[in-house]
Nucleic acid binder design. Sequence first.
DNA 1: CAAGTTACCTGACGGC
DNA 2: TGCCGTCAGGTAACTT
Length: 281
Amino acid sequence: MPELPEVEVICRGLQEHIVGKRITAIYSSGKRLRLPLERESMHRELVGQRILNLSRRAKYLCMELENGAFLIIHLGMTGNMGIFANGSVLKKHDHVCWTLENKTELRFNDTRRFGAVQLLAAKDAKAQKKALFAATGPEPFSRTCSTSYLKERAARRKQAVKCFIMDSHVIAGIGNIYANESLFRSGIHPTRPASTLSEKEWKRLLTIIRKTLRHAIECGGSTISDFVDASGKGGYFQMNFQIYGKAGEQCSQCREIIQKTTIGGRASFFCPACQQEDQSR
DNA sequence: CAAGTTACCTGACGGC
DNA sequence: TGCCGTCAGGTAACTT
């Protein structure tokens, strides 16, 4: 579920509640997440440490501690983070709780446990972090992620453009939903081989990806104000999807019936009129 | 090297 | 009512 905008909103929402606070205790459910939880070292490295900052890279949350350690959190499909009163009743699927000095707790909840909580120990955290993101593509809002960058990366790739923009090694943060939305809004058919997009099309697609992500962040931003107890507030904020999940409905632009297909094993939605398969548009 | 497939996991939902 | 199959999507390891 959480793609770049959701992670960004969670990141911003948590900041004011945790930055500057000291971790006083850690609880974990013992259930396995996508990666094994290093309970011992997490306790050793984090307890007593102040949180310096929280940032986002791709769909990961990166928490930096004053001793130089990092906590890297991925929300997987169903993960969420929230702030709760210390000692309040745990919800089902709360897997990790970091108690803070001000009688609150940061909690990681993840129904399907596709998420992961990774500790980067202080002594080589910088190097580990670098290695972790070595193969990760640029952030969509970064200068590095330019029209020419995308065009060059796509040069010899016959892969569907939808799979291409969802590839985190190419560009960070775009999941199935925003890939569908961005391609629809760009008028590009999702199965078009990535190498066939013109410079002009890449330019439009990049602009629209940025616009779509920014809009989604803004829609989610309204939930920040009441972020305490944010866990459980699922869903995709207030953003209205134009194409995702709309199979059989009329296209908002042309009234054509929206089609559904599978691309790269993922549900894909498109308007056959607005997103022509041949590239002569 | 590119690209396709599978595993990981739970809950919701539809069919019977 | 309940059982079963299917689907949902992020990531990385694996196969082709």
